Computed example of a mutant assay.
Amino acid sequence: MMSSTKSVFRWWWIWQSEKIEEWLEEQERQGWHLMEVKPNLMRFYFQKGEPRTIRYVFDYQTEVNDDYIMLYEDAGWEPLNNGKHSWYLWRKPYEANKPESRPEIYSDIDSIIQRNNRMKRTLIIVGLVLIPSMVMGITAQLLWQVRLAFIISYVFIWILFIYGISRLSAQNRKLRSRSVSSRH
């Protein structure tokens, strides 16, 4: 007997929001309806039902007012777990036999680039905030092995942040070139 609910832990990086959106849409096509997302945005709860075609979009916003929420709700988007760690998850049904009707939350390429820049800024700020804690952690330790472990841990974290920033920058370059080529 198959369970009518499931909980899935799915790791994803902020520069991969499109992949997690596609995965959520595939879950809907298989009849697993998203009911809840935990605040860490990696634990998803589903309930079994009829397959449906739903567009999911994660939007990263650091400053939101009521107009932002109203704009998307008026356009037929349903909010899910909005505002957890500046991420807003939206969904909207569309007709499966009309893939061209798949809704987009961003009206233009510049909006996507701005979203990517907000994520890059956050990664840079968090990376810079880690510097004093690393210095304090290293200087407070008497054992060189613990100091080395701190250094290795922070270097790994910074490599991830730099990789994320470079991925977002690459996405922006690709979007800009697509925008330029579509104008000609």
Rank of each mutant, 00 (worst) to 15 (best):
Q27E: 15
F58D: 06
S169F: 14
V37H: 14
Q30N: 12
L24F: 05
S3F: 08
Y106A: 00
A140D: 05
S86Q: 08
A140F: 00
S179Y: 05
Y88P: 13
S4E: 05
R147V: 01
R115F: 07
S107Y: 01
Q171Y: 06
K6G: 02
V37I: 14
I109W: 06
G76K: 12
L143W: 05
G164C: 02
M35I: 11
M70I: 09
G83H: 14
L168G: 07
V57D: 04
M136Y: 03
P99Q: 14
M136K: 00
K120T: 08
I138Y: 06
V64H: 08
A149V: 03
M2Y: 12
K98E: 13
R10C: 12
I124D: 04
P51C: 09
I69Y: 09
Q27Y: 02
T122K: 06
Y94W: 12
F46M: 03
N172A: 04
F9N: 06
E25Y: 00
R121E: 05
F150D: 13
W77E: 09
V57M: 07
W15A: 07
N40G: 13
Y72R: 14
R167G: 00
I125S: 13
V129T: 01
E95Q: 02
V37F: 08
Q27M: 12
W90Y: 15
P39S: 14
D108W: 02
K38P: 00
A96W: 01
I105G: 14
E26V: 15
E63P: 00
E36G: 02
F46P: 02
